[in-house]
Nucleic acid binder design. Structure first.
Length: 596
RNA sequence: GCCGAUGUGGCUCAGGGGUAGAGCAAUUCACUCGUAAUGAAUAGGUCGUGGGUUCGAUUCCCACCAUCGGCUCCA
């Protein structure tokens, strides 16, 4: 490799290491600027992150937008001052003394927590020196384009037990155009935000009187969910699932057996007072213990397994007040939940079936390219959060990992993300703000069958506990609706669209024909609306476009004469006049094939 | 739960210690209309809720509720 090649690779922003270095240096420039303007502020940490960087500061007040402007100007100055960035290594005690003398308690804490043999390095640029593993750019002037995006609070070292620091988020790019493109992309993404678009398009609303995290699904949103739910239930039936319908609440006794009472109490809505009432109920946060009761109605034979139950199940979780977000994070939601009881020799096959179903759903919805797979394991340093022994956890986690590897799933492993009763395969998806949530989950459970005494008589006449697979097939309907709105910017795939076609008569004199056309479409189960108002065509079109209706059908004299309709598609644009029968054929086919 | 911002008619937003205004939407009338805004008129708000200060609060103060952006937590 020639020297210039080496150099150009080093400077390549698509190279993750270089990008992170670039942004990490940007965060140091931010910290230097903050220290210049607000010397009393204590430094936290300042890493690069997926789309930029942040730096945490201990300061009484939050940073105001005006202060961010001021800090940005100071950063410009620091860049223009062309500071060489110098790395030095220091013995532990010297480094502690250094930061103690500069009254940087967080830095001292960080050094104290470093392993004994860690190399402690400092990076200096001008008058500013920071504890940092590096690497960094060579000179502050190499940062060409940056912007501070927001200020928000964050707990020191991510723990709510710690003090809250003030975080400044920013991003940086090799040139102003890339920065501008990024800012534009953020703005564009915001326009797709389901929380805004979903309300504008009348998919859902919220009401102060009903409360936080309890959205009201309006007719359009409900229609989408109903369509999706029917599809999911039919597909599950085809795949050997039996539908159950179990109560939305139960006595505390049930949750005491399942472990929810001890491990999930904060997440439940409890009805009644344990200290006063003889019976205390709780709304269900999960369906598992309810559906298990269906299994328990009689003695099960190994020949009956696997038993696959599914339920379109409404759940209630008492999320903390600051956590609700549109339809993505709510307190009551409905989920395509199910449980499979199976023998050990069936686990792999059944798990595969669950993943096939999930992938089929994602494929159908056009979301398969947008998800990632996360193998969520327990945290062995926090055993109190889980039930079961270390041996059991290790064994079932190894089983799951083997299955995933055998299936060739491309997954990442995550500690501390498991359910309290077992590991999970979580299918993750990002919303329009880049925030990741779980869409679908498939879990292997080796605890609850034992707790509830679920058994089957095996071929050797012995009673054994089945494995339980907990799974969803599209996950939560509210969340899925939100993701679909964002994915398609409100223009959902036709089969899901609440209004599939809207008829716009050019004038009142064409109303009879318009209604006739509507009947023809309705006869084919096409969801159709008519704008029979006395407005001018231009106005009708403008309104229909704002509603993001898939097909707009204009009828006037020309169409009536030829029994046709002028079609405008949201996706394909102007299609001109089509014979009515041709249009029906086209739209029916599009609905049937679930075209995206 | 924590930090911060926000809350004025259906929507977007002005205003500001003396009981509120615009545009769009709605309704009515005229126009009977061919692809992003025809004209005129009408109606609609105890300014998120509850306290407090004040002669007087939508405006100032406090609490609560809700919405948004983060953190933490989670499907």
């Amino acid at each position: 490799m020639s020297q210039t090649d080496e150099k150009s690779e080093k400077m390549d922003f698509s190279n993750e290491t270089y990008k992170n270095t670039y942004r990490h240096t940007s965060s140091h420039i931010l910290a230097q600027a903050v220290k210049r303007i607000f010397p009393e502020v204590k430094l936290g940490i300042g890493p690069s992150i997926e789309n930029g960087f942040y730096y945490d500061f201990d300061r009484e007040k939050a940073f105001t937008p005006e202060e961010l402007k001021q800090i940005e100007e100071e950063m410009e100055k620091i860049i223009r001052e062309h500071f060489t960035i110098i790395r030095t290594e220091m013995p532990r005690q010297l480094a502690i003394d250094y930061f103690a003398s500069k009254e940087e308690p967080y830095k001292v804490e960080l050094i104290n927590d470093l392993p004994e043999d860690a190399v402690i390095s400092l990076y200096q640029q001008g008058e500013f020196t920071d504890l940092c593993a590096g690497p960094h750019l060579e000179n502050t002037s190499q940062v060409r384009a940056f912007k501070l995006l927001s200020a928000a609070a964050a707990y020191w070292r991510g723990s709510e037990k710690n003090k809250m620091l003030q975080r400044i988020y920013g991003t940086s790019f090799p040139d102003k155009n890339q920065l501008k493109d990024y800012i534009n992309a953020i703005e564009e993404a915001k326009k797709r935000d389901h929380n805004k678009l979903g309300r504008e398009l009348e998919f859902f609303t919220t009401c102060d009187l009903i409360g936080q995290g309890l959205p009201i699904l309006l007719p359009k949103g409900t229609k989408v969910i109903q369509t999706l739910q029917r599809f999911v239930e039919d597909e599950e039936e085809r795949r050997g699932y039996q539908l159950t319908k179990t109560p939305l609440m139960a006595k505390s006794d049930l949750y005491k057996i399942s472990g929810h009472w001890d491990h999930y109490r904060d997440g439940m809505f409890v009805i009644g007072d344990e200290t006063k009432d003889s019976e205390v109920f709780a709304l269900r946060p999960m369906t598992c213990p309810f559906q298990f009761q269906a299994y328990l109605t009689k003695t099960r034979s190994y020949r009956e397994l696997p038993i696959r139950y599914n339920e379109t199940s409404t759940l209630f979780r008492n999320e903390s007040s600051g956590e609700m977000h549109g339809l993505i994070r709510v307190r009551q939601f409905t989920i395509s939940e199910g449980h499979i009881a199976c023998r050990p020799d069936q686990v792999e096959q059944e798990f595969k079936g669950c993943l096939d179903l999930a992938n089929f759903m994602l494929e159908t919805l056009g979301l398969i390219e947008d998800v990632s797979y996360r193998f969520s394991k327990w945290d062995k340093n926090d055993k109190a959060k889980y039930i079961g022994s270390e041996e059991e956890w290790e064994s079932v986690q190894n089983l799951m990992r083997d299955i995933l590897n055998n299936m060739g799933v491309d997954f990442v492993e995550a500690d501390g993300e498991a359910a309290f009763y077992g590991p999970k395969l979580d299918i993750q998806i990002k919303n329009v703000h880049g925030k990741e949530d779980t869409m679908i989950t498939i879990q292997i459970d080796f605890q609850l069958a034992t707790r509830f005494g679920m058994e089957y008589v095996d071929s050797d006449g012995q009673k054994k506990h089945p494995y339980i697979i907990h799974r969803t097939s599209v996950g939560c309907y509210e969340r899925t609706l939100a993701l679909l709105i964002e994915k398609y910017a409100g223009v959902l795939p036709l089969w899901l669209a609440p209004v599939q076609a809207k008829i716009l008569p050019v004038a009142q004199s064409h109303l009879d024909y318009a209604y006739e056309l509507m009947k023809k479409l309705q006869a084919k189960n096409i969801r159709v609306q008519i704008d029979d108002s006395d407005e001018k065509l231009g106005k009708k079109i403008r309104q229909t476009q704002m509603e993001k209706v898939a097909y707009m059908l204009v009828v006037g004299d020309k169409e009536i004469e030829s029994d046709s309709v002028a079609v405008r598609s949201r996706k394909e644009g102007e299609l001109g006049a089509l014979p009515v029968s041709d249009f029906i054929e086209k739209i029916v086919k599009e609905i049937e094939t679930k075209a995206i």
